[in-house]
Design a protein around this nucleic acid. Sequence first.
DNA 1: ACCTGAACACCGTTCAAGT
DNA 2: ACCTGAACACCGTTCAAGT
Lengths: 258, 258
Amino acid sequence: MLDHCSKPARMTGMAPRTRQSERRRQVLTRERIIETAVELLDAEGEDALTVRALTSRLATGSGAIYWHIGNMSELLEAATDAVVATALDAHPAETAGTPRDDIRAVALGLFDAVTAHPWLAAQLATQFTRNPWGPVTLRIFERIGRPVRALGVPRADWFTTASTLVHYLLGATTQTRQSDDTAPASAADRAAFLDTASSAWQELDPDDYPFIRAIAEQMRDHDDREQFLTGIDLVLTGITTLHPAPAAEPGERLPGPE
Amino acid sequence: MLDHCSKPARMTGMAPRTRQSERRRQVLTRERIIETAVELLDAEGEDALTVRALTSRLATGSGAIYWHIGNMSELLEAATDAVVATALDAHPAETAGTPRDDIRAVALGLFDAVTAHPWLAAQLATQFTRNPWGPVTLRIFERIGRPVRALGVPRADWFTTASTLVHYLLGATTQTRQSDDTAPASAADRAAFLDTASSAWQELDPDDYPFIRAIAEQMRDHDDREQFLTGIDLVLTGITTLHPAPAAEPGERLPGPE
DNA sequence: ACCTGAACACCGTTCAAGT
DNA sequence: ACCTGAACACCGTTCAAGT
């Protein structure tokens, strides 16, 4: 008989077994803490997620939180992972037609998640740098990798190709938003922001920033989502140019080598 | 006559005028604070940069810091910008031959800076998400944009093309490193890390993570720098495929349209 | 103009103690 | 096993006061 739990917060993915049917509104679980964290982040932004705020929302003490969760950055990771998971599940890869569509679906899922949860961009970036092969990265990588394989990319290039796509994806989703954490920008706010930025760019020193000055108007008129998809297409073009796909009927499912 | 400085920390790029020749070792300036911040970050990692640590290194009070600097995140931005600036200056764009070489030079400059300053990856990511068009992004964008233009990309696509490249670049540099902040990983540490990660991947559920399992060995044997450059080439291939360059002598300098 | 440093209003985390 | 909540060791930032 092993003492399976003398130190807390270890069994990461496992809900504590419920003996009868417990009123879930009352029991404190890891899942409930994560849920509440996401609510707090959505409602009041990243700075509002403190253990004190959690304890008051959950009507417990800080010790209770730490019994379930380990520490704050673990909670942030779990919250990010949860949101990313549902974002990716929103577009199940099997549904779409071509591998290209699958990749676009994953990309748009992430993009929409970031606009729905303004705190997510910063957390994705943090997760990605602090824990490059943590659950969040792994999840995205897997979802991108499958269509990369189906695209007909040779096995030896799977890792490199998927990495490139994921890197672009993370870079792009991560820059996508200029609102502050609490108030998702309205369309008007956004236009105003782009307008002032664009004007500021035109005032830059012509010797230091000729290129920025040259694209100032383009940037004012650009649409983030569209630009995002164009970038994906550019990377996909690179992939299919370097690794021309084996001939196949359009819409047919490619199993990929091996 | 205008009172140019009733509120502090406003004249961002301007050194306070020195009347005679002041012993610079003694005067506290914005630049000296930034320098010290970088030293602190390099030596002890991101968590070690506190205003208390700064005051003791600089032998002042916290108020002195705030007279020059505004707040902590402004300091972080300035430190990041300073390091990025010298990283990009290490490979002046004019030196290299083709636009492709210029782009690679910028990319490698950033890559090397991130490995030399382990805290930089996280800060780049933060700067990029919190302040998408701040000085750091602008600087990189300009440096990438010039060769994009020289590549012969049509004017209408300058912004989109440069964005894609920058997004990939940031994503890739940002994931590049798994050491903790204080101890840059030795080659052996790195190999051990990749080895355990690779093994862990092989243990993943075959239903949930077939792709990750399939690339586990590739990832163990991969080299970050090489993978980084391969990604750049892939994106460049996408660019030149979508926008074939006008014919020109190899090595000849293209001014770009307009 | 520039700097001091005590004080304020927070943090995350721990841990003896309860049930 | 699970939770309480006071206490600890920090933070960034402010501001009256000095020169």
